[in-house]
Write a protein that binds this DNA or RNA. Structure first.
Lengths: 365, 365
DNA sequence: ATTGTATACATGTACGTACAAGTGCTATAA
DNA sequence: TTATAGCACTTGTACGTACATGTATACAAT
């Protein structure tokens, strides 16, 4: 007396589909004939035909007149668009063109087209882009988190990506909630530690820090800076550490440093968030008559070349740019091809390499 | 006794589909009921249902239980992928990141995703990319021709784009066979003429030229240089004009200029294909002890900033970069939306603007 | 050995009937 | 006035029959 509310044809259709999806019926296999199925399921041939016609329109089977009905070769090309997206905070500035170039080359070799997107470091825009990309049915995604130190408001969207089996790879940082997802990052803690150690080795006594507060990289560089100080027995002084956000980035770092200097702080070195900030600070300090590196040493990140200041080369941590992009692309391709296992933690950390410029003075004498 | 080989249900299906496609049945309209159609076409209701079920699976109609069957809102998103491609010779170098940025911003605003591709200035690769993009069913294409002065081997592919109604916009140059297609170019003839005139006005007597021979821009700049000379009564001397190809670009321009200088040519100014070439020549000449601009003046194109030579600013013709990209994107969007008429000649030329640097000496004294 | 043909069996088309179930309107009862 | 029961009409499910047409094969005729 079981009350089956499903129509008869639906039951047959569902059984067959499940058999195909579970591999019990293999591609190329012949399905039992309509009359056989009708007898087996105790329904009319007409009802069997209804079930089969649905499966045929969905692409599971093909009927061949006079021969029988066969399970179709699973056509993955319908699902695979061979498009992948690269979502970065910026496109045309800084290291990004060459980062994207590295990804492009690798992905292109593997036959993927690259859709570029930029978030301008806005989580809201990131959300909009993710939704759009999910609708576009891409094969995979390389994404640089926006404001990664802030808990992501887009976790549901990343879950959706998981649901739809769209693999993604984080670069430069991850979100605190998504640390177990595949990502490729620089060893930012190690990098900042190396730079701090470098300044200490050169005899610096009072080393300031300027870090970004709303992304993971900034937080880690901050941590590395602290570790560098404390492991040498120096005390961490929050009064000479400036933290800025994306919105402040054009004035706050410089303003804070100038404030210290004008208030008489005896800073002899600054570990900066990146080379761009370092060059800006250099320009501002020189403007105040402070010599770099004779009075204040500067370090940065990303070995950036500056067009308008070629006598100063900031001592920095190398960013491998194209190679970094290539690494990310390779990891994504592995995920697309299911080479690496399902959802295991796949983090690849690029070790930090010091590049010595002429922005740090030797104060041991 | 007409022999109709088409099944009855097929006739009904075909009629309805054509009515929908021709707009006789509008989206939202109610289709006659199954019984009405059966009577009208003198077939059983069962046969009518077969016809309707096919149309439903194809997305033309929707049946609503108890209410009727309705013509579906035409789902254009099936055809429109909202993807457009930007195909340039390079991606990460020179002016291209900012050019692409300009296109990206405009296309993004209009809801299009941007697929980037680069040809490395190889017509063969361009062909491969075009074929791939046609298969990908993109909505439109912005393309910088590769070796545009050589007749394109890919004309059939551009014809295919026309067939499939995929609009495309050329930037920087067109192919000789495709000059009537929409394109956005710099006024290269005018630009070279302005630069030549500038040197003449400053009292230069023997002005050399270094141009690319395998792209349209190079050929036009070459022409503008000639016009600039002859319109001032000066003679064009092929002995002090170097033409190079993409493959030669890294050594030939510099080598030719050095050959002239070493053979005792009394050159006092050079109109260069672009700033990159100009800076390379500047570095090579300085290496030989020749002063810029005191001994030789240099001009270029594209107002490029050079990281490693900040005391020299080449006098150049401005390239609007983002604005140029934006213009191209707007033209493409017009073509996609059929705002501008079918295949009319839509060429937009960006006028040349001189930017005076410090690479040209005043020799009037 | 090749060709043709009969046959069995597959799917395809087309007719019929009956009843289930959702929708929208109207006439009727509370 | 409001709720609802009934009715007409819609699509949805399900059964039945019949014959058309394509495919593969066994077997006979050439």
């Amino acid at each position: 007396m079981k009350e089956e509310r499903k129509p008869k044809y639906y039951v047959l259709m569902d059984n067959l589909r499940k058999d195909i999806e579970r591999g019990i019926i293999q591609p190329g296999d012949k399905i039992e004939s309509e009359n056989q199925l009708a007898e087996k399921y105790k329904m009319s041939r007409h009802t069997v035909r209804k079930a089969l016609s649905i499966l045929e329109s969905e692409g599971y089977i093909v009927a061949e007149h006079g021969r029988g009905t066969f399970c179709k070769e699973r056509d993955m090309s319908i699902k695979s668009t061979k498009n992948v997206a690269v979502v970065t905070t910026y496109i045309s500035d800084y290291i990004f063109p060459r980062l994207i170039q590295g990804m492009y080359q690798t992905l292109d070799e593997e036959g993927y087209s690259v859709i570029i997107k930029n978030t301008g470091n806005s989580p809201k825009l990131e959300g909009k882009i993710l939704q759009e990309l999910i609708d576009k049915n891409i094969d995979g995604l390389i994404i640089e988190p926006s404001k990664s130190e802030i808990y992501s408001e887009n976790v549901e969207l990343y879950k959706k990506l998981d649901e739809y089996r769209i693999p993604y790879v984080f670069i430069h940082a991850t979100y605190p909630q998504l640390e177990d997802k595949p990502h490729i990052v620089m060893d930012d803690i190690g990098g900042a530690k190396i730079l701090t150690q470098h300044l200490i080795d050169l005899g610096h006594k009072r080393i300031a820090g300027v870090f970004k507060a709303d992304d993971n990289q900034g937080a880690e560089r901050h941590r590395g800076y602290i570790e560098g100080l404390t492991s040498n027995g120096m005390t961490y002084d929050p009064n000479i550490v400036a933290l800025f956000h994306t919105e402040d980035k054009d004035y706050k770092p410089v303003a804070e440093v100038l404030k210290w200097v004008k208030s008489g702080e005896k800073i002899d070195g600054i570990v900066c968030y990146n080379d761009q900030i370092a060059y800006e600070i250099a320009a501002a300090l020189r403007n105040e008559g402070i010599r770099i590196p004779e009075d204040v040493s500067l370090t940065g990140f990303d070995n950036l070349a500056m067009p308008w200041m070629n006598d100063l080369r900031i001592t920095t941590i190398a960013h491998p740019r194209e190679h970094f992009g290539e690494k990310a692309a390779r990891l994504l391709i592995e995920k697309i091809n299911h080479v690496s296992d399902a959802d295991s933690k796949i983090a690849r950390v690029v070790e930090s390499k010091l590049i010595v410029g002429n922005s740090c003075a030797d104060r041991r004498g």
